[in-house]
Nucleic acid binder design. Structure first.
Lengths: 257, 257
DNA sequence: AATTGTTTGTGTTGTTCTGACACAATGATA
DNA sequence: TATCATTGTGTCAGAACAACACAAACAATT
């Protein structure tokens, strides 16, 4: 089954293609300039900023739908992508936004247009390598850009809430599983990894203790190269050892009881 | 808005009342006889066992819908209830089960009956005080009973998967937040709490270390009563200090970084 | 080529947390 | 009153953790 490309067919006849009532939104996070970035769309006409989202094809797995949206906006495949929450308030979706957009596009939607129904939204978050992303707006938006998470204004509908819940989830998960590497290039230095942690957790960490704890996990491979070019001592490059990581996951990284 | 009670109206005309495509399933856990129990329904006609579930009213919050299902099956309100995962495989719902049920009820459903559509399901889990529950079957089932989680056979559709994911989530969360008290009566002894932990985690714990770690959280109140009647030294009763718990939650119980 | 400034790599120490264990106190029963 | 199983509490060694100091490396400056 092909996903329709034409705006009018897609919007007007969504009920032909998509599962009713269900939408999804993706919080796509990247790391650049020592800052956490989130990928946002600027909607046509309204100019409102929104998270990339989409709908689920009638015969499509929800996870596949999320991966599809991620691919369409970033070009990336096989990426760390997890559902984190369902947003199901009855008044969360707002048909009037879509109505205005359609009207400004010269389309007069019927009052029972598919888009005006109530949607619940499944929230997904993705951790991506900033450098590998080619942001690409969809048919409904004029821009698709990275925004510093500290410089986010008011987003469409409940998207601020969705974003915050995603960040909260990432922070929690970072404490229990070393997911941070997903945001870095394949080779990275220990200071870079630490800065990433400090940024996500919004907390300063001790350089030496961080190094010790991190290496103790046994999931990093220190390479024989160093990152030259900085004006100071060249730090070693590390890469992530996926095999050891999978092993560690099974045992659980830190216990609890 | 009233929820319809009549089976025929409810099943036949679900599209009048409920959000399409969206269902929810509740994993309701209790603790009894030193065993974790889950509340299951035995479906009419097919005799298959299933998790209690339901649909979301058109103007209803998904959380409210889950609370409603919980109330209808157990009589309980204001209970620990959390969504934990969305099950969105395209082939997970199985209209044929409903079709057979309807046929045996003497109802000939039309092929485009609302029940035969694809449903995604939002999984919720609840932790309840076993003694306070009055299990009550719904219009579609003959029994509503507690089952030991070690004696669960094959459940309807993907309900085994849903149950397992719920248990996995509870185990993880138990390591980070003291949610166990939800499964116990208001007053409980330390050995009872420990047995609960051992049952959920399926692991023996040291009595003294457990006591130390548990009290260190500072969220238990030791009462001046003891539980007499056992053939041995009477253990103290404890109760849960909700105020201190909320405080502790904000700070995060165990850190990580 | 030597000096300087800043950053990285690693070691040490004292404190806290955790796991393994011992013994006294209690309550029903015989 | 003695017995037995269970509970309450203490101790100790090892691990984990936070706070800290110093040497090595790199590039820019002189």
């Amino acid at each position: 089954m092909q996903v329709p490309n034409q705006l009018s067919a897609f919007i007007q006849e969504g009920d032909k293609w998509f599962l009713p009532s269900v939408s999804l939104d993706c919080v796509i996070l990247g790391f650049h300039d020592n800052q956490l970035k989130v990928l946002l769309l600027k909607l046509k006409h309204s100019g409102v900023w929104a998270l990339p989202g989409g709908f689920v094809l009638k015969e499509e797995d929800t996870e596949t739908a999320a991966a599809r949206v991620l691919k369409e906006r970033t070009g990336l495949q096989d990426i760390f992508l997890q559902q984190f929450h369902v947003f199901g308030a009855p008044n969360r979706s707002d048909g009037s936004i879509h109505r205005k957009g359609l009207l400004k596009s010269g389309i007069e939607p019927s009052p029972d247009n598919w888009l005006f129904q109530r949607f619940i939204s499944i929230g997904y978050y993705a951790l991506v390598d900033f450098a590998h992303v080619t942001p690409f707006p969809d048919e409904n938006s004029t821009e698709c850009v990275w925004k510093d998470i500290h410089e986010i204004g008011s987003l469409m509908m409940d998207h601020n809430e969705i974003l915050n819940k995603a960040l909260e989830t990432v922070r929690l998960q970072l404490n229990h599983q070393p997911i941070g590497y997903n945001l870095l290039p394949q080779k990275f230095t220990m200071p870079e990894l630490q800065t990433l942690y400090e940024t996500i957790l919004d907390k300063q960490l001790d350089r030496r203790n961080f190094h010790r704890k991190m290496t103790a996990f046994g999931i990093l491979k220190r390479l024989k190269e160093t990152r030259k070019g900085g004006a100071h001592r060249a730090p070693f490059l590390y890469s992530f050892d996926m095999r050891k990581y999978q092993k560690a996951l099974k045992q659980g990284l830190n216990g609890g009881w």
